[in-house]
């Protein structure tokens, strides 16, 4: 998996700046849509650490995403919002611990069996939340948005400012997560992930405890998915069991595929393209899923390296 060049990072930075300035020109609907895209980009990015980074194709990532979202519900007081400084670490911790348990077992399998095991564990988490009496019910439940409290000084954005503040929060977290993963992938640890992706067996023969390395990556990805889930709950003020379901795992996998497995920033492009496409399809037809599916199929077939593989061909 490659990391974008300096020029690529300038472009990504420019795009982030455009998103940050959107509240100056766009209405609440667009801001909400872009906020969702940022959250899904963060979620897909967490999956990319596994798929593109380590060669582990998981279908259970939404389980950790959903747990992160439900952390907001679990932590909030009766009718009172909790501080982001509490809910966010709890979301990451809860999702990370779940990933530790799931990964410890799932990583004993390989390839297709890993896919099926993660799918099974994801669905178990889904049914746990779906059926548990303490999880707010099968239809989901409204949650209090975490506030920006610090030492009793709570900042609660005015209703009118809220879409912008949420957008900036999601953008900041996405940028931080991306920067963090750049550091991870450039590190000695990241090189091990790359080696494992190409040839796990050989890495073991060289003296690498690949099981432990993969488990660390799995927990890291799970915690990051938990942060994404937390941002979902904060953005929507609503959580439901579907957040943990395999549909959502598959959706993130599609975003990764559409953006390209070969580049760390692929899922960022993939998530925005996917959500943009969804929006367009909704305008023209009722059968948006079909349109979506066809376009993604075409994109994946035509662009071998996904959207991240597109190049400006004008310069020689």
């Amino acid at each position: 998996m490659v990391i974008a060049s300096r020029r690529g990072h300038l472009l990504l930075g420019g795009a982030a700046l455009v998103v940050a300035l959107l509240p100056l020109v766009a209405g609440a609907y667009v801001l909400q849509l872009v906020s969702t895209a940022l959250v899904m980009a963060l979620f897909a990015l967490s999956l990319q650490l596994l798929v593109g980074g380590t060669g582990l194709v998981s279908l259970g990532q939404a389980g950790f995403f959903g747990l992160g979202a439900y952390a907001v519900y679990f932590v909030q007081g009766k009718g009172a919002a909790a501080s982001l400084l509490l809910t966010l670490p709890v979301a990451a911790l809860l999702a990370g611990l779940a990933a530790l348990a799931v990964g410890a077992l799932a990583l004993r399998t390989r390839g297709f069996f890993f896919l099926m095991t993660t799918l099974a564990f994801g669905q178990m988490l889904y049914f746990l939340i779906h059926d548990a009496p303490w999880a707010g019910g099968a239809d989901g439940i409204f949650v209090q948005r975490p506030n920006f409290g610090l030492f009793g000084l709570d900042y609660v954005p005015a209703r009118r400012d809220r879409p912008a503040v949420l957008l900036w929060t999601n953008l900041a977290l996405l940028c931080a997560a991306y920067a963090g993963l750049v550091v991870v992938m450039r590190s000695l640890f990241g090189r091990m992930l790359q080696g494992i992706k190409e040839n796990d067996h050989r890495m073991q023969a060289l003296g690498h405890n690949t099981y432990a390395v993969k488990l660390v990556a799995f927990v890291l990805a799970g915690a990051l998915a938990g942060v994404a889930g937390h941002q979902w709950a904060m953005t929507e003020a609503f959580v439901n069991p579907e957040l943990l379901g395999w549909h959502r795992s598959a959706e993130a996998l599609l975003m990764v595929l559409l953006g390209g497995l070969g580049a760390l920033h692929g899922p960022l492009l993939g998530a925005f393209a996917f959500i943009g496409l969804n929006e367009l399809a909704q305008l023209v037809t009722e059968r948006q899923r079909l349109v979506e599916g066809l376009v993604i199929l075409a994109a994946v077939l035509l662009l071998r390296d996904g959207l991240a593989g597109l190049r400006w061909r004008s310069r020689a």
């Binding site: 450039r186 000695l188 990241g190 090189r191 060289l206």
Partner: peptide, 21 residues
């Protein structure tokens, strides 16, 4: 890189794994 990964297995204690390769 193939050979570097081999050398890394022996030369890198876990606490250094976060350094830029």
């Amino acid at each position: 890189e193939n050979v570097r990964l081999a050398a890394q297995a022996r030369l890198t204690p876990p606490t250094r794994l976060w350094r830029n390769a």
